[in-house]
Computed example of a mutant assay.
Amino acid sequence: MRNAPTTIIVGSLISLLWVASANAQGRPDARTMTCEQAKQLVADLGGVVITTGQRTYQRFVKDRRYCERSEVLRREWTQTLDDRACQVGYRCAPHTQRN
């Protein structure tokens, strides 16, 4: 019975490490996905931040519901594994009035 608390502590630590490693995986990288995979990711999640380059990232959305009221949709392209200019989805951009 003396080992029961040790087993519980070790089990808890393993669980914490597993959760921490899952959270530390980072954001998806468009350069490692096909165009269709990247499009499907945006479609499934609605809005997602995706790595687009070595030091760049972009938030892609599937429709207007994922933008602020003062924003509009703009088509957004990025490089994927199989396409240099894949329209993954849209980005939310500030609405600018034209004179």
Rank of each mutant, 00 (worst) to 15 (best):
E71P: 08
Q25H: 01
Y66R: 04
W77F: 14
T80F: 06
N99E: 04
T96R: 08
G26Y: 08
C92N: 10
T51H: 00
R31D: 07
P5S: 09
A22C: 03
R75D: 14
T56W: 05
W77I: 11
N99I: 03
R65N: 12
T34R: 03
R59T: 11
N3M: 12
M1H: 15
T32S: 15
Q40P: 00
M1C: 12
A93N: 07
W18N: 04
G53A: 14
T6K: 12
R27I: 09
L73D: 07
W18C: 03
A24E: 01
L45V: 06
V42C: 04
M33K: 01
R31P: 00
P94I: 00
C35K: 02
R84Y: 15
Y57I: 05
Y90Q: 11
M1S: 15
S15V: 12
Q54D: 15
R98T: 03
H95A: 03
V49N: 11
T56Y: 07
R55D: 13
A22W: 02
R98W: 06
G11Q: 10
V10R: 13
G53K: 02
D83K: 13
T96N: 06
L16A: 12
I8W: 14
R64C: 01
D44R: 06
T7A: 13
G26P: 04
V49E: 14
